[in-house]
């Protein structure tokens, strides 16, 4: 399956330069791809129209650098700020409606399994907290109940950013926002815990402040989804605009929120099945290393 991403020779002279760059210097089919490719490789995400300094775009870059098999990965988005980025990523991706992303991914993953029974095809959902937890919660949970084999990533900015900062289910209690004129009256929905109880084999809650950690989590989540069962990652991507921060303050906001005792302190749940799968992977890697050195 090597060199699947290539340009037909007859078309090379008419292809745009950035497409040639993508094929020449992109990281498709690169076995050890990760955040370390930043700066030297062509990223699988191009210019996008998110706000200057948006932590969501940091997270998006880290994720696109970390997915293990981009040449066989299809992503599903939902309506929101991410729909301004999806058209610019270099893997097939679907936007259909607002909130049905896990239903789309279910059909997608199953149909790919029917069409390519002997091949790996990863499916990753990436949607905001409104889509994941509010309007799409039914489909989010049901896909986990059914143990659908894909990864769900929630970009949690604790509000509806794209429509102008309205209250969302993942917003903190007491936060004053549009549609929460006297402050949000109920607690931040505990989706990571719900995910664990709903059948996810791997759950992580985090921020995008450390690319190496994002890389590790994304790789684990995708591989576990492929081999064991559904996985869920909730990443804090604050909307600096709506919480009144400057464009350069997003990183600090993430760091503050992941401090011990804070709501985005890194937590991970790994089911026993997923753990033994990960152990197997680690052992295999170790054996490979030993074989390589001897």
């Amino acid at each position: 399956m090597a060199n699947r991403i290539q340009i037909n020779k007859e078309f090379v002279d008419i292809m745009p330069q950035d497409y040639l760059d993508l094929v020449e210097n992109g990281t498709f089919e690169s076995p050890n791809r990760g955040w370390k490719d930043f700066g030297t490789a062509t990223e699988l995400i191009a210019e996008h129209s998110l706000c200057a300094g948006c932590p969501e775009s940091i997270a998006f870059r880290h994720i696109m650098a970390s997915i293990p098999n981009p040449e066989d990965t299809v992503m599903v988005g939902s309506t929101g700020c991410t729909s301004l980025v999806f058209p610019m990523i270099a893997v097939h991706n679907i936007h259909s409606l607002f909130g049905n992303q896990n239903a789309i991914a279910t059909g997608l993953k199953r149909a790919l399994a029917v069409r390519f029974p002997d091949r790996v095809k990863d499916v990753i959902v990436l949607a905001g907290d409104g889509a994941t937890v509010d309007i799409g919660l039914d489909m989010t949970l049901q896909s986990w109940f059914r143990k659908e084999r894909f990864t769900t990533i929630c970009f949690d900015n604790e509000l509806y950013a794209n429509t102008g900062g309205q209250e969302s289910g993942l917003m903190q209690k007491g936060f004053l926002a549009k549609m929460a004129p006297v402050g949000k009256r109920f607690d931040k929905v505990r989706l990571p815990e719900i995910a664990r109880e709903s059948g996810c084999d791997y759950v992580a809650i985090m921020t995008a402040s450390k690319p190496s950690l994002v890389e590790k989590v994304i790789k684990q989540a995708v591989l576990i989804a492929r081999e064991v069962g559904p996985t869920y990652i909730q990443i804090y991507t604050p909307c600096i605009l709506e919480i009144g921060k400057q464009s350069m303050e997003g990183l600090q906001e993430m760091r503050t929120s992941e401090a011990p005792g804070e709501r985005f302190k890194f937590r991970e749940f790994i089911s026993p099945e997923a753990q033994s799968f990960l152990d197997g992977l680690a052992e295999k890697k170790k054996a490979e290393k030993i074989a390589a050195t001897t």
Binding site: V74, V76, I94, S96, L97, N100, A103, I104, A105, T106, G107, L108, K109, R110, A111, L112, A113, V114, R115, D138, M139, Q142, R146
Partner: peptide
């Protein structure tokens, strides 16, 4: 493949996902 969806809204989404995948 065949499955029971969770609601008609989701069912049509599941159908769409599969059709996007070429089924």
């Amino acid at each position: 493949d065949y499955m029971r969806g969770e609601s008609e809204f989701a069912v049509m989404g599941e159908c769409a996902g599969a059709a996007f995948a070429g089924a």
